[in-house]
Design a binder for these strands. Structure first.
Length: 199
DNA sequence: CGGCCGATTATCT
DNA sequence: GATAATCGGCCGG
């Protein structure tokens, strides 16, 4: 079953940890590519100085102001695409960055799309690594994650054991002022639990 | 316009 | 640890 829209209707901080353990599915040329989400980050509100919406509503940030359950895919560093799930009510900018997955379906195809270190432990533990492996780019910006038609959606995954989640500060935002820089808005399955649950 | 810098990654030392 | 790669968004002039 595809995760319904109301799963995304809360804030980004509320939704980000809940997404850990779910299965991110990409249908590419009729083939299912999928991974278990193991790390997420929350970005919400124009006040959050790490959030793109700090500049207000612009063509780029428009997806964050839209329907929850849609994709916000943006281009950065001149070469990378990053995938977010939009959350919260329309008009309230919020999104959850998908930072890492553990491959479970279509691994061979994913390795073709991203050959570097493919198969090595943690080879999809980066927001730009997983988009490359799943064939995600700007064409999927604003795609509906609640519809199978989009070719990008979430499904049930694994059950996350109690205490398996770690909360840490967001990364890549070193010039962001306090208190935003130190918000513990990044969630990850700790390595032990990851190994125990996923091998 | 010009300049800075980025929700990153690979490849050096 | 440091840095190149590489380009669009945003801000100041």
């Amino acid at each position: 079953m595809i995760l319904p829209r109301d799963f995304y209707s809360g804030s980004a901080v509320e939704t980000a940890p809940r997404l850990i353990g779910y299965r991110l599915v990409r249908v590419l040329d009729g083939t299912r590519l999928a991974g278990i989400i193991t790390e997420t980050e929350a970005y919400q509100c124009e006040e959050d100085q790490a959030c793109h919406a700090r500049s207000g509503r612009t063509p780029r940030t428009e997806p964050m102001y839209g329907e929850p359950g849609c994709a916000y895919v943006y281009f950065t560093y001149g070469m990378h695409w990053l995938l977010n799930a939009v959350t919260d009510a329309p008009g309230t900018p919020a999104a959850v960055l998908i930072r890492a997955i553990f491959p479970v379906e279509g691994t061979q195809r994913m390795a073709e799309l991203r050959p570097m270190l493919s198969g090595q432990p943690g080879w999809l533990n980066g927001p730009a690594k997983l988009t490359q492996a799943l064939g995600i780019d700007g064409n999927l910006n604003q795609a509906d994650l609640c519809s199978e038609q989009s070719g990008l959606f979430l499904e049930e995954g694994i059950s996350v054991p109690p205490g398996a989640l770690r909360t840490v500060a967001r990364v890549g935002i070193n010039s962001v002022p306090e208190p935003w820089r130190s918000k513990l808005w990044r969630w990850q399955l700790d390595p032990n639990s990851l190994r125990k649950v996923l091998g």
